[in-house]
């Protein structure tokens, strides 16, 4: 009973916070609404006994939204005083499309003949996940790790303006590097 109440409470929070993302008139509120929605879903995942994934969702998304808020302030120039944000375009199509999609998905969710549970619950879900990750699917996960590292590097390269030639000179021999502000390691 308690589980059901908590689940529905979290569901309401998750969806309303999700709606708030596109309704509120401030960037900070938008990104932290999304963070709240993620936290609610993370807690629901905890209710569904997937502790590791649930906690991970909370961890990653709060961090990401903290960065997101800063991004939005940098690019869009917002402060708490400037709460006028209407960045909607093409709302005419977006609303019916998304309502349609919702009806379709909801119909599927409610009327599809979902199978009853097959297999048994592992004793320790987290340990089972770890074994699964590092056992037969280790190669896949290692590949995911490499992809993520590559993304970080390429993301920085894409976004950065200064290259190593700007820092170290044309022959890459200038030491210390010509940075606008020196770093802490003294390269």
């Amino acid at each position: 009973m308690v589980t059901h109440l908590v689940f529905w409470g979290l569901a309401v929070v998750a969806v309303l916070a999700g709606v708030a993302v596109f309704v509120v008139n401030s960037m900070a509120r938008a990104s932290y609404s999304l963070a709240l929605s993620f936290i609610a879903v993370g807690l629901q995942v905890l209710l569904l006994q997937q502790l590791y994934v649930g906690v991970l969702v909370i961890l990653m998304m709060v961090m990401e939204m903290a960065i997101m808020a800063v991004y939005m302030n940098m690019f869009m120039g917002m402060n708490p005083a400037m709460m006028s944000m209407n960045m909607v375009h093409g709302a005419r199509h977006a609303l019916p499309v998304s309502v349609g999609v919702f009806l379709l998905l909801a119909a599927g969710a409610l009327f599809a003949p979902w199978p009853s549970r097959r297999g048994s619950l592992p004793e320790d879900v987290t340990a089972a996940l770890g074994t699964e990750l590092m056992g037969p699917k280790m190669l896949a996960m290692a590949a995911v790790g490499v992809v993520m590292a590559a993304t970080i590097v390429s993301g920085v390269v894409l976004a950065a303006h200064r290259t190593r030639y700007d820092r170290f000179g044309d022959d890459l021999r200038r030491r210390p590097a010509a940075d606008p502000q020196p770093g802490g390691v003294g390269r």
Binding site: N73, M74, M76, G77, M78, N79, P80, A81, M82, H161
Partner: peptide, 18 residues
Amino acid sequence: GDAALAHGSEDRDGLEMD
């Protein structure tokens, strides 16, 4: 002063910022 913003200009990384 409050965090009032004016229009953007390039920062030292050549990125336009408010």
